[in-house]
Every structure is written in structure tokens, then in C-alpha cells.
Amino acid sequence: MKRKYTKSALLLIDIQNDYFYKGKMEFKGSYEVVARAKKILDSFRKKRKTVIHIQHIAVKKNATHFISGTYGAEIYEEVTPKENETIIVKNTPNGFIDTGLFEYLKNNQIENLTIVGMLDNMSNDPTVRTAKDLGFNVQLWEDQKANLSVV
């Protein structure tokens, strides 16, 4: 028997303190991104949909940001994970490489992903491409005008 609905999840990628004021890698558009992320996050939480925070932790010895145990590596306070939300730690730009993300999504029968992250060309792009290659339906927030596009 075929399911009548599909499950969705929100992926919040690299929304961490190092991208904000006085962070190790301050990003000019970080406050616009987090404002939109918070809106989408609130909507997902209200509907009790799955929320997954993807946190980058650097593993290279000469890393300058996202260093484990530092304030900069922590998830930004506006989108702090709640107790029932999953945190996936990654060490590469792609949220699927050497993480449990794919298994988590499959085990929870999630087919649709809404993705909001800090840097389109770094972490969002490889994660979105892999998600599409793995058969997920993807919506990506990709510009300063707060538009979601289906990829």
C-alpha cells in the first residue's frame, strides 16, 4: 500500500557563530540568512516536522574556524537546536560524506528536504547535489530575497 503523504525535513547547514560579528570567518549576509532560517525553522517546529542541524567541526590541525570546543563552532543562538532535534556533525563541505545523514533520512522515511545554509558555493551546493543524486526532493533557499527554489 502506497503512503498518501511524504515526510519532510529541514536541514540547517553551518549556521554557526564563526560566520557572525567577531567570528573567525564573518560572512556579510549572515544575519539575512539566519533571519530566513529562523522563519522557516519556526514553521517546521510549529508543524512538528523534522529539523536537522548540520554543524561543521574542523579536523585539520591548521584550521582557523569551526574548531571543536570553541564558541565559534557552536550553532548560532537564533537557531539553537531543541532537545528533540538532530545534530549531524560533518568535517567536509558535503553534509552526506562520513556522516549519518543519509541513514537518518532513510530510517525516518524522509523524502523532501528544505535546505537553508550559510554559503551556497561551499556547503549548500555539494549537499544539495548529493541529496538530488540520492533521490530526495529538494527546496533550497538560495538568495538574499528569501526565495525558495525547487532543485
Score class of each variant (00 low, 15 high):
residue 93 P to G: 10
residue 26 E to P: 08
residue 27 F to P: 00
residue 102 F to L: 15
residue 106 K to A: 11
residue 102 F to I: 00
residue 36 R to I: 13
residue 60 K to R: 14
residue 75 I to G: 01
residue 18 D to M: 05
residue 32 E to D: 15
residue 106 K to R: 11
residue 91 N to K: 13
residue 46 K to I: 03
residue 37 A to V: 03
residue 31 Y to E: 12
residue 90 K to F: 08
residue 91 N to D: 03
residue 75 I to R: 11
residue 75 I to L: 02
residue 19 Y to L: 02
residue 52 I to L: 14
residue 109 Q to A: 12
residue 18 D to C: 08
residue 95 G to E: 05
residue 23 G to P: 10
residue 41 L to Q: 08
residue 104 Y to G: 04
residue 26 E to N: 06
residue 76 Y to D: 05
residue 20 F to S: 04
residue 50 T to S: 15
residue 22 K to D: 11
residue 79 V to E: 15
residue 60 K to P: 01
residue 93 P to N: 07
residue 78 E to A: 09
residue 79 V to P: 15
residue 20 F to T: 00
residue 58 A to S: 08
residue 95 G to R: 00
residue 61 K to H: 03
residue 27 F to A: 07
residue 98 D to K: 10
residue 29 G to E: 14
residue 59 V to A: 11
residue 19 Y to E: 00
residue 25 M to T: 14
residue 66 F to E: 02
residue 111 E to K: 10
residue 104 Y to Q: 05
residue 95 G to W: 02
residue 58 A to Q: 12
residue 103 E to M: 06
residue 51 V to F: 13
residue 93 P to Q: 04
residue 17 N to K: 00
residue 18 D to T: 02
residue 82 K to V: 01
residue 35 A to R: 10
residue 99 T to P: 07
residue 81 P to W: 03
residue 52 I to G: 15
residue 88 I to P: 08
residue 37 A to E: 07
residue 39 K to M: 11
residue 34 V to A: 05
residue 100 G to E: 15
residue 27 F to V: 12
residue 70 T to A: 05
residue 108 N to Y: 06
residue 82 K to P: 10
residue 96 F to Q: 04
residue 23 G to K: 05
residue 17 N to V: 04
residue 29 G to T: 05
residue 49 K to F: 14
residue 105 L to V: 04
residue 95 G to K: 00
residue 26 E to D: 15
residue 44 F to G: 06
residue 95 G to V: 01
residue 56 H to Q: 11
residue 53 H to A: 04
residue 98 D to V: 10
residue 94 N to G: 08
residue 100 G to T: 14
residue 56 H to E: 08
residue 39 K to L: 12
residue 42 D to M: 05
residue 104 Y to H: 12
residue 62 N to A: 10
residue 20 F to I: 07
residue 91 N to M: 00
residue 65 H to V: 13
residue 45 R to V: 15
residue 83 E to H: 06
residue 61 K to Q: 14
residue 47 K to V: 12
residue 79 V to Y: 07
